[in-house]
Structures are given as structure tokens and as C-alpha cells.
Write a protein that binds this DNA or RNA. Structure first.
Ligand SMILES: Nc1ncnc2c1ncn2[C@@H]1O[C@H](COP(=O)(O)OP(=O)(O)OP(=O)(O)O)[C@@H](O)[C@H]1O
Length: 668
DNA sequence: TCTTCTGTGCTCACCAC
DNA sequence: GTGGTGAGC
């Protein structure tokens, strides 16, 4: 149990006993894997940043109230966010406004902004709570603040190393591996040189430091008895560098925007997220690899991502425990037997803190929804139509804020959801339609489409009473595809970033983990290879990347099959990934530049365009302070894409990905 | 304090068809 | 591609 992720094996197995000096457990290859964001790199460093009581802070900033002023954000009669000073009074999300005020008479309860019929903009209104029947909540102030915060975070990372995933309105993941790699090479010239033997599998020398100075607010989790006896190895140093970066990012957020946040730094998303929740507010937690087991063993596994719902419930029922420690003794065969192969392996890995999921460099939204619950229900077409106007105003304003009108990135579909009946029960129905792409998109067009959808729903009958309506638009991601001239590669900001990181992003989306209900049995199979080879989601420049990602089978199989190691601290990963045999076996089109195999000549062309754009970008940015040439390879598809494998254990049961994973297995 | 709790208002991902 | 569900913030 403990031993698998324990550093117990740390330092005990230098590959070559003949070396005179103590060597790192990591190799030169491991080090260079950082530069390419390889998900199985044992030196990978991921950060999770979570804003403290976000909506409450947003209101504090907007209103300019003192830091220690208790404040809660009100939505109708409930509280949706409570700041820490107010929590000290025992006020929580469950409280009603009245209860909360009783607990703390000094409490500010700020109602969220609302839309109101006849007004052309959302506004903060004193009488919002009494107008639940006519007002519609607007969460836009928080979305706008979220964007400023995201921009500040990005601004504090080197322009070509902004691997940032917006995980929710107030959370981001950062893959700091390449950034940390660059810093390491600068600070430790001895590892910037090539391996003396010329063999990348040679162990690195140990870091030339004997103790690491973890700053006061970087909270290092305690290790068990033996841990601190070992000198720091490169993974510890990498975490330390990352914690400095994160501390600086947090300082920028605080100094420029006046927001505080919690952060977790660890080797993957799973652990960094648990880390950020561990000490709040306004603190950061580092979970060094050697501390992983100790850190996890105290948890209930139901706190882990994807185990908080039905799957977690199922697991705790079957094994009669919610304790990580107790479940760790269950053999993988047993987990596979009871949960299915994929889910069993996924649970086994997750319990050990193993998570190879990618930080997807995505910060743009994919859909937008505007909704209203009716209490009491509404009963006429006229009422519904008037709500549609408000939804459209809301959505249109948000589209404008997104810059959708300027960009070519516009939604492709519009969807109306309807709930029939009273309260939260009742069946739901929805109708969607394409948004015409020829002409410019305006509010009236959207309203017309929404009305058409409403009429369709009405025609199907059983409409009234209606307890909920929502309008959404989606399909944004296709906007950047289309025909790809060179010009379309010369995008700024995030779109350019998306292109740059595309390979890895796409790789992730294939094999990464997904969330899924245990019940859905995944079929291993069938559509397998064909589907794998022919899949075409978006004809975008990202595609080549997909192709690049395809060849990670070997790694995938290795991981899935047990050894928790590649993501485990004790075993630096050797990646089997060097050969391109999978691709050639598939019979694709090879890129002369990086050896990637593309699905078609068209994909190859796009891929080559990508290289071109990437070159331009690098030229523009110039070389950053790398100690050597590593930066060239850092973001290039060859290293990153091919090697980086979604060795991720796939998530619980989901079939589609599972299929792909299975495919990969058959390849590997 | 903690998504062990409410309800509402979101966003994303997956699945069958 | 369309419509339904689940999970999380
Ligand atoms: N079920 C929900 N319904 C509506 N809004 C929610 C819900 N859960 C979370 N939110 C909103 O999303 C924001 C982020 O949620 P999160 O879970 O991170 O808690 P938080 O309020 O930021 O507090 P913490 O400091 O514990 O992170 C919150 O401020 C909150 O208002």
C-alpha cells in the first residue's frame, strides 16, 4: 500500500551502482520531459489555484469593504458565497439571510446583480430579492472578474509557457513543468549540460543544495518518519521552484486585483487540487512526491475528484469503507473484478495519487447558458416569451463581452430547455437549432431562433405549468477552424496558445480520464481501431496534434496495467515512447520535421502550417533564459506530442475513451 | 469552513441514438 | 448532429 507511492524506494535503487557519487533517482531524459509537458514525466509540476470564497471577494472588491468585514452574497433568500470573516460566525451556504443576520448582525448581504424586464442591462438592485418573479440573476460580474484574474495569471507566466486550464469560474490549473525546467537549467548549470555519457537515461547528479528554503506560506506537508532524512532530489527542487512561481502569481493577483486565493502544488492535477483545498484561505500547499502517501492516507476517497458521486458511493458500498488507507490494501484484481477493468485500474491509481490527465490549455468558453427557475410556475406563452427576451439579452451581452462578434468565434447552435411540472421534479425537454452562419449575429436573430424553439416545444404539448426555462448557445470551438490560411495561425492570445498546445490538448482529450458513471460498461472494442483512425472532430489545426497523440499506446498500457509508477515518485518513468512504429503501422503521412504521423495529407499540411506558425511565434518571443537549447524542443510537437502520452488511467468507466484506451493497448 | 446539508444558476463531458 | 444525464463549482 504505502510503498507504492512512498518514497521508501527513494534513493535505494540507483540504476548504476558503479557511480562514485550519489545520483539522483531522475535521469536526463526525465528532466527534458519537463520541457515538453510530458504527462508521465516524474518531475512534472502542476499547480491548482482556487480563489477564496470567490463571489464574496468579488463583492468585497466591488464595494470596497474592509478585509475583515463579514459579507455574504445573496441570491433570493439564500446565500451562495460567504467570506471567511462571516464563516467565523458559523454562517454557511445553507443559511438563509435571516438566520445569517441573526448570527452576525453586522453581516453585509449583497444580492447578486439581476436583469429586469424593460432594462437593457443587468444591475445591482436593492429590491432584487423581492422580485424573484420578475428578475433574472446575472452572474456576469463574476465572469468578468474571473477573466481579469485569468489574464493576470497568464501575464505572470512567460508568454510561451502559459499552460493554463480554466477549471471553473474560480479555479485554474497550471502546468509549470516547462517553466520550472527553464529555471532549473538556469540555476543549476550542471544539469544544463548534456549527460557525460551521452546517454539520456543516465541519472542526474544530485542537486547541489542540501536543504530547501520553503517560504513561510508554502506549506510543506509532513512526511512520515523517514522522509526528511533524504537529501532533496530534483523533484523536491522542482516543487520549490514551482512554489516560488505560484507565490509570485498569487502576489500579483493580490496586489493588482485585491483577491486572495489558495493554491496547491504537486505532480498532477488530482494532488494539486487536493492541496489547494487543504489550507484555506490565502495559503499554498506543496505536496512533494515523498509526502504523497502521507497526505492521501488521511482522506476519505469520496473527496477525490470523480469519487464524490455515484462511483464513490458504489465503491464504499462494495468495500465497506470510505478510507483511502483501507482501500489501498485491496488488490487491483479485486477492484477490476468489482468495478470493471478500467474503473478498477482508475480507482487503484487514483487512490495512490496517480493522475496523468493533461492540463488542457483551454480558457475560452464552449457554451453559455441563461436560466430561470419559476416559483411559482409560469403558465402562458406570453410569460415564456418575455423570459426569452431576457435570456437573449443576457446571452447577447455575454457574447459581445467575449468578443465573439469581432472574432470569427461564434456559437453554432442554440438550445432551449424546458422543465414541465412543479419544483425540481418533472420531465425536461429541449430543442436546438443551428445558428445561421452567413450574416452577422444580432439580438433579434437570436430572439427569433429562441422563439422558434419555444414554439416547437409548445407543439409537443405538456408544457404548462413550466418550472424552468433555459436558453443556451454553444459550439464555439469550431469557430477557429474553418479554412486555415497562414493568417489564421497568426492569432493572438489564447487562440494562438491553443494552437501551440494543441497536440497535448488533443492528446488529453482522447485518453485522458473522463468522469463516468460506473454503470456504463464500456465496451472494449468495437469501433475500435477504425474509429480511432478516422475520428474527426474538428477540422482544425489541432488535428495534426491528435495524430501525434495517437501513439502513446505503450505507455498507456504500461500504466494501466499496474505499476503505478510512472506517475509515482519512486519510479522515474522511462518512456517507451521513442519509436514511431505505431504511426507507421497505421500508415499515415509522416512529417519530415518531427516524425509525426498524420491521418491525411490534409492533416499533414495543417501540421506543417503549425510548425510554421510555431516558428514564427518562437522567433517573435525570442529565446527565454534557457540554459541550453531545450526550449526548441519544449513545445514542439515531436517531443511533446509523441511522447506525451495520455498514459492517463482513464476514468471510471467511460466507454468512448475507453475504446481509445483499449485501442492503444492493442497497439502497445 | 470544508459540495456530509439547501436552491439556483451555471459549465463541461459523456452517452445513445 | 440531437437530446438526455451526471458531476462539479
Ligand atoms: N451549487 C452552487 N450553486 C451556485 N453557485 C455555486 C455553487 N457552488 C459554488 N458556487 C459558486 O462558485 C464559486 C466558487 O465555488 P467554490 O466551491 O470554490 O467555493 P468558494 O465560495 O470560492 O469558497 P472557498 O474559499 O471554499 O473556495 C463560489 O463563490 C460560489 O458562489
Amino acid at each position: 500500500m504505502s510503498s507504492s507511492t512512498q518514497p521508501s524506494s527513494r534513493g535505494s535503487s540507483p540504476p548504476s551502482g558503479a557511480l562514485p557519487l550519489r545520483r539522483s533517482q531522475f535521469t536526463y531524459r526525465n528532466l527534458s520531459q519537463m520541457a515538453s509537458y510530458n504527462t508521465s514525466c516524474p518531475l512534472r509540476v502542476i499547480a491548482h489555484i482556487d480563489l477564496d470564497c470567490f463571489y464574496a471577494q468579488a463583492e468585497m472588491v466591488r464595494l470596497g469593504v474592509a478585509e475583515d468585514q463579514p459579507l455574504a452574497v445573496q441570491q433570493w433568500q439564500g446565500l451562495i458565497a460567504v467570506n471567511y470573516p462571516a464563516r467565523a460566525y458559523g454562517i454557511g451556504r445553507m443559511c438563509t439571510v435571516t438566520e445569517a443576520k441573526k448570527l452576525c448582525p453586522n453581516l453585509i448581504t449583497q444580492h447578486v446583480a439581476t436583469w429586469r424586464e424593460g432594462e437593457d442591462k443587468w444591475a445591482y438592485r436593492d429590491d432584487a430579492a423581492e422580485n424573484i418573479a420578475t428578475d433574472k440573476v446575472s452572474l456576469d460580474p463574476y465572469r468578468l472578474e474571473s477573466r481579469r484574474i485569468l489574464a493576470t495569471i497568464k501575464d505572470h507566466l512567460p508568454s510561451h509557457m502559459q499552460k493554463v486550464e480554466k477549471a471553473s469560474i474560480d479555479e485554474v490549473f497550471l502546468d509549470l513543468s516547462a517553466h520550472v525546467h527553464a529555471v532549473l537549467l538556469e540555476r543549476f548549470p550542471e544539469i544544463a549540460r548534456p549527460p557525460p555519457s551521452g546517454d539520456p537515461s543516465e541519472p542526474l547528479p544530485m542537486p547541489s543544495v542540501s536543504a530547501l528554503d520553503w517560504q513561510a506560506d508554502a506549506l510543506v506537508d509532513l512526511d512520515d518518519e523517514h522522509a526528511e532524512f533524504d537529501d532533496p532530489d530534483w523533484d523536491d527542487v522542482a516543487m520549490l521552484v514551482a512554489s516560488e512561481i505560484v507565490r509570485n502569481v498569487r502576489a500579483a493577483i493580490r496586489d493588482k486585483l485585491r483577491y486572495t486565493c489558495a493554491a496547491g502544488i504537486a505532480r498532477n492535477k488530482l494532488l494539486s487540487k487536493l492541496g489547494s483545498a487543504h489550507r484555506k484561505p490565502n495559503q499554498q500547499t506543496v505536496i512533494r512526491n515523498r509526502a504523497v502517501w502521507h497526505f492521501l492516507s488521511g482522506f476519505k476517497f469520496t473527496k477525490f475528484r470523480n469519487l464524490g458521486g455515484k462511483l464513490g458511493e458504489q465503491v464504499s458500498q462494495i468495500f465497506n469503507t470510505e478510507s483511502v488507507e483501507e482501500l489501498l490494501v485491496v488488490p487491483i484484481e479485486q477492484l477490476k473484478l468489482k468495478l470493471g477493468d478500467d474503473t478498477g485500474v482508475w480507482v487503484h491509481n487514483t487512490l495512490r495519487g496517480i493522475d496523468m490527465s493533461e492540463v488542457s490549455p483551454r480558457t475560452q468558453i464552449k457554451s453559455m447558458l441563461s436560466a430561470k427557475s419559476f416559483r411559482p410556475s409560469i403558465n402562458t406563452v406570453d410569460q415564456a416569451t418575455r423570459w426569452l427576451r431576457i435570456f437573449v439579452a443576457d446571452i447577447f451581452a455575454r457574447l459581445v463581452e467575449e468578443g465573439v462578434l469581432e472574432n470569427r468565434r461564434r456559437p453554432k447552435t442554440i438550445n432551449l430547455h424546458h422543465r414541465h411540472g412543479v419544483q425540481t421534479q418533472g420531465q425536461t425537454r429541449s430543442r436546438s437549432s443551428p445558428i445561421p452562419q452567413g450574416r452577422s449575429l444580432d439580438e433579434e436573430t437570436l430572439f427569433g431562433l429562441a422563439n422558434t424553439l419555444l414554439n416547437q416545444i409548445i407543439q409537443d404539448g405538456h408544457v404548462w405549468p413550466c418550472s424552468n426555462l433555459s436558453l443556451s448557445v454553444g459550439g464555439f470551438e469550431d469557430g477557429i477552424s474553418g479554412n486555415m490560411g497562414i493568417a489564421s495561425f497568426l492569432l493572438r492570445g489564447e487562440e494562438a496558445q491553443a494552437l501551440t498546445d494543441g497536440p497535448r490538448t488533443r492528446a488529453e482529450s482522447k485518453l485522458k480520464e473522463q468522469s463516468q458513471p460506473p454503470e456504463k460498461r464500456r465496451r472494449i472494442d468495437d469501433g475500435g481501431i477504425q474509429r480511432f483512425l478516422t475520428r474527426k472532430e474538428t477540422p482544425s489545426p489541432l488535428d495534426p496534434i491528435d495524430a501525434l497523440a495517437e501513439d502513446n499506446g505503450a505507455e498507456t498500457s504500461r500504466v494501466r496495467e499496474t505499476k503505478l509508477d510512472s506517475d509515482a515518485p519512486s519510479l522515474p518513468d522511462e518512456g517507451p515512447v521513442l519509436q514511431a512504429n505505431d504511426e507507421t503501422a497505421i500508415g499515415g503521412h509522416l512529417c519530415a520535421r518531427c516524425g509525426a504521423c498524420l491521418e491525411s495529407s490534409e492533416s499533414l499540411q495543417s501540421h506543417q502550417d503549425w510548425h510554421f506558425a510555431k516558428d514564427l511565434q518562437e522567433e517573435e518571443h525570442g529565446r527565454l533564459g534557457f540554459g541550453n537549447q531545450a526550449s526548441t524542443t519544449a513545445a514542439s510537437p515531436h517531443s511533446g506530442g509523441r511522447r506525451s502520452g495520455p498514459a492517463a488511467p482513464k476514468r471510471p468507466g467511460r466507454p468512448k475513451k475507453t475504446e481509445r484506451g483499449q485501442q492503444k493497448l492493442s497497439f502497445g
